[in-house]
Simulated assay, not measured.
Amino acid sequence: MGFDEISLKGRALRLLAGREHSRAELQRKLRAHETTPGELSQALDELEAKGFINEQRVIESVVHRRSSRLGAARVRQELQAKGLDPQAVAEAVAGLQGSEEARAREVWRKKFGEPPRDAAEHGRQVRFLLTRGFGAEAVRRVVRGTAVQDDEG
């Protein structure tokens, strides 16, 4: 059986085997393979009913894979891009904000490991962390080193 003959459900399962996908992502990726209207929607309904597509697992997967390297803002962006429920995204991101500074410090430590020597280096370190979606306050505290080291909870 050639690749073109694989059912939409089979294609979806193949994608899901690689990583968790939201329904919106699967629709976007598989739309081109739909031969009759409603066929894709029906296949995704069946997969959702059987628990193969699970929004909460998608959220947990993204948070688990990305939160050690990215700030809450970037994780929120990635979750929103997957077409997930806004309330569920907001809750997941709120859970990350408590550890924002500690995560930013760890990313900073791996990349730089020492305080900036001058204003240019300070700017570079700040921009690096900001582009990874860490909050401005957490970034300021990490780069300045004003954070209480043992208060990482």
Rank of each mutant, 00 (worst) to 15 (best):
G2Y: 15
F3G: 08
D4L: 13
D4P: 09
D4R: 11
E5H: 12
I6W: 07
S7A: 10
S7H: 12
L8H: 13
G10R: 04
G10H: 11
R11Y: 02
R11V: 08
A12C: 08
L13F: 04
R14C: 11
R14T: 14
R14F: 07
L15C: 08
L16Y: 05
L16Q: 05
A17D: 09
G18K: 06
E20I: 11
E20H: 10
E20L: 12
E20D: 15
E20Q: 15
H21C: 05
S22P: 06
R23P: 13
R23A: 11
A24T: 11
E25V: 15
E25R: 14
L26G: 06
Q27H: 12
R28L: 04
R28I: 10
K29Q: 13
K29P: 05
L30P: 05
R31T: 12
R31K: 13
R31H: 12
H33P: 06
H33A: 13
H33L: 12
H33E: 15
E34G: 11
E34S: 10
E34M: 10
E34R: 08
E34N: 12
E34H: 08
T35N: 11
T36G: 15
T36Y: 15
T36P: 09
P37I: 14
P37D: 15
G38A: 09
E39Y: 13
L40E: 12
L40M: 14
S41M: 12
Q42P: 03
Q42I: 12
Q42A: 14
A43I: 09
L44E: 09
L44H: 10
D45V: 05
D45S: 08
D45R: 11
E46H: 14
E46T: 13
E46D: 13
E46M: 11
E48K: 14
E48V: 09
E48Y: 15
E48I: 05
E48Q: 15
A49S: 10
K50V: 07
G51T: 06
F52S: 07
I53W: 06
I53M: 04
N54Q: 09
N54M: 06
E55P: 05
E55K: 10
Q56W: 11
R57K: 12
R57D: 13
R57P: 07
E60P: 00
E60W: 04
S61M: 04
S61I: 07
V62L: 05
V63I: 02
V63K: 00
H64L: 02
H64S: 06
H64N: 05
H64Y: 02
R65M: 03
R65T: 10
R65A: 02
S68L: 01
S68Q: 01
S68V: 02
L70P: 01
L70D: 00
G71L: 05
G71N: 02
A72G: 01
A72C: 04
A73C: 03
A73Y: 09
A73S: 03
A73M: 02
R74L: 01
V75R: 00
E78P: 00
E78Q: 09
E78G: 05
E78Y: 08
L79G: 00
Q80W: 03
A81K: 04
K82T: 06
G83M: 02
G83T: 03
G83K: 06
D85H: 04
D85R: 06
D85Y: 03
P86F: 01
Q87G: 04
Q87T: 11
A88D: 01
A88T: 03
V89R: 02
V89K: 01
V89Q: 01
V89E: 02
E91F: 06
E91C: 03
A92P: 01
